[in-house]
Nucleic acid binder design. Structure first.
Lengths: 336, 336
DNA sequence: ATTCGCGATGCATACGATTGCTAATGATGC
DNA sequence: GCATCATTAGCAATCGTATGCATCGCGAAT
């Protein structure tokens, strides 16, 4: 049984095929009577316009490609929950604008198929990802820097079209919070020297605020991009072994914070009494940690809307490239 | 600057357009020399076949639609992480077969756009979801029961095309584990009377195994579909208030288990000494709970492959509708 | 030498909608 | 009563590729 076409509907409704098309696109002026007749015929034939044909003819696809960069070794369960949430948010925002979303998980480091716009699969592209697949980012780099219809989350490198969390404000918030809780010897944990500019932004917001409070020095542990939790653990181990004197930690992401927390717990350093911790990202896991971690959380619903607005053209005034953030205060910084 | 077409490539390579097409589809017999010439011309023109046109002409899209049903009130961060992981797994499995994935989050209860196959947006459809948007399931029900090119995760109702976790085996595993740890007075917590057959399957596996061990009776708390954690909490409150004598819990899903754990902790009932708990789903949060929860975890990588194989036609012998499961033993059932 | 077969390529059409232009219709103005 | 205009609907070209069929060239078979 062949699927019915606009011609079948036209015949049944006693109109021309172009009239049927006009009814469905809603573009042209069609009288109410004709519209009703066509819709009725369409309904009885169970007709829906063929997207393949309308896309070819009209020139646009009504599709937004969303590429999620993951680490090659990650299974679907191990993909960063933050990336999933942002993905969901982008899809929802796109849907609200009448766009469908083509989703691809980009795990490989050597093979890429992210040419969705070029092959007319989508009108635009959003790239989301953990910062830990450098090869993939390198691949997308020229696209993100030059092409108009491509945008990414975060700030993987200078001059990229991006929407990102308000990292500077987030860093400042962390500093203010720790300072207000009476912590005076902060450590910053993060890969600030990596190309991933977002960590540097967090660090700058953090250190600028501390300086303005009159803080003398900040201990900085520069990390690499690999296994975050492990890096967090090792950094604390290093500091402890060196006998460094510190009373608080601002971790550039929650996984680093979770790793640091583990290391502190192992060493019998009490949180928040001996050391306060603030993370970044608002991962669910921070709420279940022992003790629950204070964290900087970006508004992902907003972020999704901003990404979509930027890349598809802004209807509303969603033109900002910085997603609002808030500090979620929890026990890890609740000094008695 | 217009995008180049197969005609441009043909002209440059000195062949016909159909030859260019044949080179790119790889379908017909083309001499190596011609192929090289065409590929070179294509490269220099930065040519990629237009998917819109090839889909229209060829009759298939090479796209798999994935619909994720969520609760209307959920933000992207609140969507069940299990659903996200399964989504990722399905996308990956589809990609391995050369399919792209069209993803849609279906939150609304009254409006549906899930007609991706009908409007030639995709060749087939996979439906994933929490069990908590009944209206959405009702909408998809006829599709899942009749259409060949639609399949879902779980067993929302009888006779649906589905792939699901091996619930019966999972229930049995939970029973065996609790029994081996010396627990003798089990409670089952779950919505077994709901239409969602999967919970009933878990219960049956659980109770059959217990009966085979000679267990006299199982206390059953039948829950509704709403807010899982809350239901788990309330069930424990009910049992405690009634002074029911029990020493272990098998929760039909992890959220129920987490809620139950909360309630036990609040009442000063020790886990695992006084009460053992086994959950279901293998959520990350169970690993961070206090104490970490034992849970039944389905192999989602496999599940994704099975879903895709079933709905797109099976290459490999991935014809099973039951995804393998394993029990992750943690402190919540580690009786001294 | 003629024919046959087969691999390699070209020709021309079709996929099913969108859309610019034209035509028909009825209403309106004078 | 005729010209004008606004509205509505039809005609036909077009989007870029895939593909059935015809063709062409060349070696093998008779």
């Amino acid at each position: 049984m062949r699927k019915s076409t606009a011609w079948d509907v036209a015949e049944k409704a006693g109109v021309s095929q172009s009239t049927v098309s006009r009814v469905f696109t809603g573009s042209a002026r069609i009288s109410a009577a004709t519209r009703d007749r066509v819709m009725e015929a369409a309904k009885s034939l169970d007709y829906l316009p063929d997207k393949r044909a309308s896309r070819l003819r009209s020139g646009h696809t009504g599709v937004l490609a969303v590429v999620v960069i993951t680490r090659p070794e990650d299974s679907a369960r191990e993909v960063n929950p933050f990336a999933y949430a942002l993905l969901g948010s982008v899809c929802k925002a796109a849907s609200q604008r009448g766009y469908e979303t083509l989703v691809a998980f980009q795990a490989a480091e050597d093979e890429f198929y992210g040419r969705y716009v070029e092959q007319r699969d989508a009108d635009a592209m959003v790239v989301i990802g953990t910062t830990q697949n450098q090869a993939a980012w390198d691949y997308f780099r020229p696209r993100l820097q030059s092409e108009e219809r491509t945008i990414c989350w975060g700030l993987p490198f200078e001059e990229a079209h991006s929407v990102r969390s308000d990292n500077h404000a987030g860093g400042r918030l962390a500093a203010e919070h720790l300072w207000n809780q009476g912590y005076r010897k902060p450590v910053f944990l993060g890969p600030i020297e990596s190309e991933q500019r977002q960590f540097h932004e967090r660090f700058e917001g953090f250190s600028e605020a501390l300086r303005s409070f009159g803080s003398k020095s900040i201990i900085v542990q520069n990390l690499t991009q690999k296994d975050r939790m492990q890096q967090g653990r090792e950094a604390i181990a290093r500091l402890a072994d060196e006998g460094t004197d510190f009373d608080s930690i601002f971790a550039a992401c929650d996984y680093i914070a979770l790793g640091a927390l583990d290391a502190l717990n192992e060493r019998g350093m009490r949180v928040p009494e001996d050391v306060g911790i603030v993370g970044y990202d608002g991962l669910d896991a921070t709420a279940h940690a022992n003790p629950p971690l204070t964290t900087i959380k970006a508004d992902l619903e907003k972020a999704g809307q901003q990404l979509v607005a930027q890349v598809l053209g802004q209807d509303e005034a969603e033109t900002s490239a910085l997603a609002p953030i808030e500090l979620i205060a929890r026990a890890s910084t609740e000094r008695p």
